[in-house]
Structure formats: C-alpha cells, structure tokens
Simulated assay, not measured.
Amino acid sequence: MNPVHKKFSRRARVATGGAVLAVVALAGFGAVSANASAPAAPPTTATSANAAARATTTSTHLTIDAATKAAQAALDAAEKENQRVTVAVVDRNGNTVVTLRGDGAGPQSYESAERKAFTAVSWNAPTSQLAERLEQAPNLKDIPGTLFLAGGVPVTAGNAPIAGIGVAGAPSGTLDEKFAQAGANSVAR
C-alpha cells in the first residue's frame, strides 16, 4: 500500500475525494454558466465582417407548414377531379419534405412524384418543358433521380427555385402538372 494511504483513514480518503470532485464540478459549471451568459463579441473590424459575409450564403426554404399546405392543395385539386394521385414536395436540394399518397393512388406514383419534384427544382422549370428538351439532349434522362414527364413544377422566390412539387398518378401528365401548379399557387398566396 502507498505510504500516503497509510496516514489517512479510508473515511478521510473518501471524504477528500468527494470534496475534490465537488470543487471540479462547480468550477466546470461556473465556466459553462459564464460562457452561456456572456454576450457574443461583435466583429472586431469591418474587414472580418466583410470576410464572413463573403464566406457564407443565405437561402430560402419552404417551411414544413408551407410544404404541407402545398401538397394538400395539389391533392385537393386532384380529388376534385376524381383523380387518385401522389404528391411530393422537395426542398431546394431535392430532399423530400412531404409526400401525400391519395386514396387509391398507384404504387408507382410515389417514386414518380418525388422524381418529378426533384427534376422541376433542379432545372427551375416545369417538367413538361424539360421533357421537350430531351429532343435536343436525350442524355438528360440518364441523370440519376430525374423523371422527364409532365407533372412537376418549381416553387420560386425571387426567380430562384426553393422547392419542387411533383404529382403522379393521373391519366395524363397535363393533369398531374395542373395539380402540381395548384400546390405551387397555394404557396404564392
């Protein structure tokens, strides 16, 4: 046994260790509290503020509420015409935010709606227009995740795409796109 341990009883060693742990814990808590309550330091110079502004960007995205509203508006428009469709809303990066599969929509409509929405936001154009472009550039259809069939429309803010809405399942792409546009129009209001 260590000679230092022989001088102190077990009870004294436990009490000392507990006291040390309490002091360390309180010191750590005090440091965290001090950091949490200290106001953020403003940029020291205009140069550092300008550098930060050049190194960052701000983008606009639909909220989940707006995306859900748009999807529901597209689904409602389809249901008014007795069409069984699936509606997908993707964000600016093509990530699915909301998908609503209407009663009786075909199993293929889920993926098709997402791919149409992705395609519309990627090119900031309705997929019916993009389908026409395939005549000049047939390799476009080989890009993963895309679907060049009518039924997808972009949602824009300041002419920049912020989301895409895709609809699939109606008997024609023209109808799909009509319903997708109803969803996009609900966001613009």
Rank of each mutant, 00 (worst) to 15 (best):
A66N: 11
E79H: 10
S59W: 04
A66G: 10
T45V: 07
D65W: 01
D76A: 15
H61F: 12
T58K: 09
A55C: 01
T68M: 09
A49D: 08
P39C: 08
T60R: 10
N50Y: 10
L75Q: 12
A77Y: 00
A73D: 04
S48L: 08
T45S: 15
E81S: 11
L62F: 00
T68L: 11
T47K: 14
S59D: 10
A73I: 07
A46G: 15
A46T: 14
S59K: 12
A66Q: 15
P42R: 11
K69R: 15
A40H: 10
S59F: 10
R54G: 07
A70D: 05
T47A: 15
A53G: 03
P43C: 04
K80F: 02
T44I: 07
P39V: 08
T60P: 00
A55P: 04
I64W: 00
A70L: 05
R54Q: 13
T60A: 11
T56P: 02
S59V: 15
H61P: 00
L62N: 01
A41F: 07
A46N: 13
H61S: 13
A49I: 02
T63W: 07
N50Q: 14
A73P: 03
D65I: 09
N50S: 13
E81W: 00
P43G: 05
T68S: 15
A51Y: 03
A70W: 02
A74I: 08
T44D: 13
T60K: 10
I64E: 11
A78D: 03
P39F: 07
E79I: 06
A53K: 07
I64M: 13
A74W: 02
P42Y: 04
D65F: 08
Q72P: 09
T57W: 00
T63Q: 06
D76Q: 15
E79L: 09
A53R: 07
K80C: 05
D76K: 14
N50A: 15
T44S: 14
A66K: 13
P42T: 09
L75F: 03
N50R: 15
A49G: 04
T68H: 10
T44H: 11
L75A: 12
A67L: 07
A77F: 00
T56W: 02
A74K: 06
L62R: 04
D76W: 09
T45W: 04
R54S: 12
E81V: 07
A49Y: 05
A74Y: 05
T57E: 12
L62H: 01
A55L: 07
T58W: 01
A46M: 13
A40S: 13
T45G: 06
A78F: 03
T47F: 00
T56A: 07
T63R: 06
A77Q: 06
A52S: 12
A53D: 03
Q72H: 12
A40G: 09
S59Q: 11
P39Q: 10
A53T: 02
A51R: 11
P42G: 11
A77W: 02
L62T: 02
T45H: 04
A74F: 05
T63S: 15
A41H: 13
T47I: 10
T58I: 09
T60G: 01
D65S: 14
T58G: 03
E81F: 00
S48A: 12
T44L: 14
E81M: 06
Q72S: 12
Q72L: 08
T44V: 13
A46Q: 14
A46S: 15
T63I: 07
A53N: 05
K80S: 13
S48R: 08
A52M: 10
T63H: 07
